[in-house]
């Protein structure tokens, strides 16, 4: 399972990196990527629905529901007929949902993988030069002995804030030039690297480096796990959230993907003649 997941991640990362290399420098690159993803998602979801569902059964079920709704209107004076028809509409809807469940199951897992990987690119913005950002380190025990070392291109702009309650130390850094850097966190004689990206283009970001097992890491981290049993539990880089301007509103990319992929799905339904 893990190998399958990793393979799909590698494939997706390759595809995303290729797309980013084509239009990653554009101001609207995030919007373009969401639109592209929405078209692909809409198309694939429609195809999956077409081949994973019982199209004939769905058609019959929808016709039955329509017939019962018509019966409600035509026999509105016959209470028993109306009640019976409502009951059939209800049971028909349950059956219709059952027919839809299979394609949803088929498309759900790939969709989650897609969203998780896309979030690396679209969830946060890379740091800009001169923009202050925070690096937070959570350790297993009291955090006085944790230190940070930065490469050329990154500078520490304030002393660390120690938050004893959370075993956390927070530094404020800033990038003097664009680049992909590794900051080194030193604790208890061990040192750990954490990637930091300062860039003006759309690129892959990893907000966290964690010690947690893979099923927890896949949601927020794109870096190898911290060594098991080490003093450091997590290292976080505070990338700013990304909001995408679309239709006079600022969108979280996931909501925008949902709306646009549903819209594109309906277009492909009509083009491919799929019964939904």
């Amino acid at each position: 399972m893990s190998l399958l997941l990793q393979s799909s991640f590698v494939l997706l990362v390759g595809a995303f990196d290729f797309v980013c290399s084509v239009f990653g420098t554009r101001v609207d690159s995030a919007l373009l990527l969401v639109i592209l993803l929405s078209i692909v998602t809409g198309f694939l979801m429609t195809l999956v629905y077409r081949y994973a569902s019982n199209q004939a059964a769905i058609r019959i079920e929808k016709d039955r529901i329509k017939a019962n709704l018509l019966a409600v209107r035509v026999y509105r004076d016959e209470l028993s007929v109306v009640a019976q028809s409502y009951g059939r509409v209800l049971s028909g809807t349950v059956r219709y949902l059952k027919y839809s469940l299979r394609p949803l199951l088929f498309s759900g897992i790939p969709l989650i993988i897609l969203v998780v990987q896309a979030d690396r690119y679209l969830g946060f913005e890379p740091l800009r030069t001169g923009q202050p950002f925070l690096v937070s380190v959570v350790s297993a025990t009291a955090s006085e002995k944790v230190a940070i070392h930065t490469p050329a291109g990154l500078e520490i702009t304030a002393a660390p804030v120690h938050i004893a309650d959370e075993n956390k130390v927070v530094w404020r850094l800033s990038a003097t030039k664009e680049g992909q850097y590794d900051v080194i966190i030193e604790a208890d004689g061990q040192s750990f690297e954490k990637q930091v990206v300062a860039s003006s283009r759309l690129t892959r970001l990893s907000q966290f480096r964690l010690q947690a097992p893979w099923w927890k890491r896949i949601w927020v981290s794109a870096e190898p796990a911290l060594p098991r049993g080490s003093m450091i539990e997590s290292i976080e880089v505070g990338y700013p959230f990304r909001y995408i301007d679309f239709a006079w509103m600022q969108w979280n990319w996931v909501w925008l993907l949902l709306v646009l992929s549903v819209a594109s799905g309906f277009v492909f339904k009509w083009v491919l003649g799929v019964e939904i």
Partner: peptide, 25 residues
């Protein structure tokens, strides 16, 4: 605001934003 016990600085958390300020900054 979370204040460092020894140094003169604090971390401020507001919605999804966090930033550190030194005294006099």
């Amino acid at each position: 605001m979370t204040i460092d016990p020894l140094e003169s600085l604090a971390r401020i958390s507001l919605d999804d934003q966090q930033f550190i300020l030194r005294e006099g900054e």
